[in-house]
Design a protein around this nucleic acid. Structure first.
Lengths: 193, 193
DNA sequence: TGTACATCAGTGAACGCGCGTTCACTGATGTAC
DNA sequence: TGTACATCAGTGAACGCGCGTTCACTGATGTAC
């Protein structure tokens, strides 16, 4: 699994061959079958491992409710740190979300959906979101998740070691999340006249 | 190019071989070289063709300013129609945006950036956005483009012939765009106290 | 504590296959005079 | 209007290569008695 992830910096998982993985791992091709029956099984294991990183991130964001609730900046900071610390995991998720095999695509998609639902539950504890119906909360959470995903994509795309472009990505994310957060009360006011 | 696009329903461009393309086109493998020097050149030609569809969409949205300016529903309708009419073009863009070769990824990314800038220019003509600075407008346009992209992704993901799920995607898009639109004045009010 | 056996990750040779690319070719269509 | 030549898309044989997968194997580690 480590070998596969380390190959992702250069290419997408779908275009990595079984032999490339074993070569990277310093092992003979047939040894692969001691661990997985094919590349798809490896891919699904990587989905699980990768979303483990994401869940850990969410757990941390939750453990500091003050920061989570009040400072967009704090949340973006946690996001950025996790993307750096688990770069290949996030690269894998972003690359295979649409490019992967059907099984891997579905696995990633359902993890994101789960993640979005959990965020909706968290959001329902916000004072000014308390009275929203589930549907509106889901939509709102989806909007935030979209912005988070494109921020992750932005961070991964920025050439490594160009802090100025990355700072730009971060600044954009913070302002977009602020726009969304400010839109929420206006939306609620408009839909319950 | 038609043959390549027709293969995209099943797999991503990166994992399509030169021989598969010629087989689909009903032609001998070597005939490929009469048109492109390699698969990457084909891919770049497809980027151009695909974004042609997208530009046509923008042109139509612009030609009916009333609808463009006032009804989010109208804009989403145009978007949905274009995705259906050019399904393989959009599939190609979504799949290769992260999964493709470096050259193709860059080409797609810069087209999206261009698209976002043009939207920012259009937005500056809105009465209540007239006084925004370029930076805020770009950020705002980015947010809208993100939402459009994830709506496109949603439409492409929905199994064909399940109108109820598609309607759900459309409804979510409309409400998210509304949240964003309502957030704009609040954002401006907050940043110019 | 020692012996016998099972489990397990990795080995190395071999297979048939689809791949990208080369080459010299064919025959239809377009262009110059 | 007729002839000579150029351009062009497509052909078909051939190449060397990396691929996924099979098979019988080795040798280290763990477990039962």
């Amino acid at each position: 699994m480590e070998a596969a992830l380390s190959l992702l910096e250069r290419k997408s998982f779908t275009s990595v061959s079984l032999r490339e993985v074993t070569r990277e791992a310093g092992v003979v091709p047939t040894a692969f079958y001691r661990h997985f029956s094919d590349m798809d099984e490896l891919g699904l294991a990587l989905v699980e491992e990768s979303f483990g990183s994401l869940r850990a991130m969410l757990r941390e964001a939750r453990s500091d409710p003050e920061r989570f609730q009040h400072a967009i900046r704090g949340s973006v900071e946690i996001l950025v740190r996790y993307v750096h610390e688990n770069r290949t995991h996030f690269l894998f998720m972003v690359r295979e979300r649409f490019g992967g095999s059907a099984g891997i695509r579905h696995a990633i998609r359902s993890e994101i959906r789960l993640f979005s639902s959990e965020l909706a539950t968290d959001l329902s504890r916000f004072p000014y979101l308390r009275e929203w119906n589930t549907d509106d909360l889901q939509t709102f959470a989806g909007l935030i998740v979209n912005t988070m995903i494109s921020t992750i994509e932005g961070i991964l795309e920025v050439p490594e070691g160009t802090p100025s472009s990355e700072a730009e990505v971060i600044r954009t994310a913070e302002r977009q999340l602020l726009m969304i957060a400010l839109g929420a009360p206006a939306y609620q006011a408009a839909s319950t006249p």
